[in-house]
Every structure is written in C-alpha cells, then in structure tokens.
C-alpha cells in the first residue's frame, strides 16, 4: 500500500541521507521525496511517498522518528490532505498538432511555458492522478522529457503539524 509520510526535520547536512538510508536498508524504494524549507528557515518539510507493507512502513517510520535531526513524522495517508505535484513535460509539437495539444493543456488547466520549433514544454500541477492523466494523453504526440517534483502534502483545516518548541534539557 502507498504511504504518504510528512516529516519536519532540522535543516542539517546529511539529514536526507539519514532518512533515505532507513528505507533502503529494508529494501524499500522511495517513490518520491520532496524537501523544502518551511516558515522557519532552520526547519525543512519532507514529503515521502513509499509503497510497502503497513507494519514495515510503521517500523521504518519509528526509526525515522528516532533520528536526532527529525522533529516530527506523521503518516498522513489516511488524513484529509491536499497533495500536489508539479511536472514539466516536453512534447513533440509542430504547426499541425499544436492546437490539439493546447486543447489538452486547457482542459487540465496546465500551461505552455516554452515553445520551440519542434516541441513545447507543458507545466502542470495537481495530484498524482491528474499529472499521470495528462502525461497519458500527451504520450501519442511524443514525449521527449518529463520532470516531476514528487508530491508535497498538507493536512486540511486547522489540524497542524507543529514543530515542537525548542526545549532546553538540563543534564
């Protein structure tokens, strides 16, 4: 089953390797991973999509949580959340089929961001299904390149994935 994990991590060198290593160790291939800083520049959010057995993913998640640089991990697979992905798709296009492509782009509320002699670049955002669908429809025209960001996600409403307050532990 596909799992969406949302992590809040300290913006330290190596944190991505530490997280990724825990998945590869159990033979799990991360489908997508997207990282970017949050409202706090010392803290990043990572969204990981991984396919795997419920129990194993849970155990990996607990190990991720143990990493010193990880502040919070949530499995938001079953939460009501907004998930988005951005894709750039370079499609073969010439004067004869450009208008057909434009129609598809319109339907998906995507955009043409570059026009060349032999191709156009389409930019689309949406959930995974939408991005998959437009790629499917553009395929007959000849796709030259695809770049996808991987999913980012956020739980809807007031429920928030907070960064814990920086507590000072006195030893």
């Amino acid at each position: 089953m596909k799992h969406i994990l949302s992590l809040i991590v300290l913006n330290h060198a190596g944190v991505l390797t530490r997280v990724a290593g825990l998945f590869s160790r159990r033979g799990y291939n991360i489908e997508s991973i997207a990282v970017g800083i949050t409202e706090d520049p010392n803290v990043s959010r990572m969204t990981i999509v991984v396919d795997g057995d419920e129990n194993v993913v849970e155990q990996i998640t607990k190990n991720v949580h143990k990493l010193i640089d990880v502040l919070k991990v949530s499995d938001i697979t079953h939460d009501d959340c907004v998930d988005r992905e951005l894709a750039l798709i370079k499609v073969t296009a010439n004067s004869s089929n450009r208008s057909e492509i434009l129609q598809i782009v319109d339907i998906f509320r995507a955009r043409i961001v570059d026009v060349g002699e032999q191709s156009v670049i389409v930019e689309v955002t949406g959930d995974e299904g939408k991005v998959d669908a437009i790629i499917q429809l553009l395929r007959p025209y000849g796709i030259k390149e695809v770049a996808r960001t991987g999913m980012i996600a956020m739980v809807r409403g007031t429920k928030m994935q907070k960064t814990p307050s920086r507590r000072v532990i006195n030893i």
Partner: peptide, 10 residues
C-alpha cells in the same frame, strides 16, 4: 555549560 538543546531527541 551543561545545557543541551536537542528538540528532536526526547
């Protein structure tokens, strides 16, 4: 000093 500030380790 003996202060340690590790918010991700509790």
């Amino acid at each position: 000093t003996d202060h340690v500030n590790l918010p991700g380790f509790r």
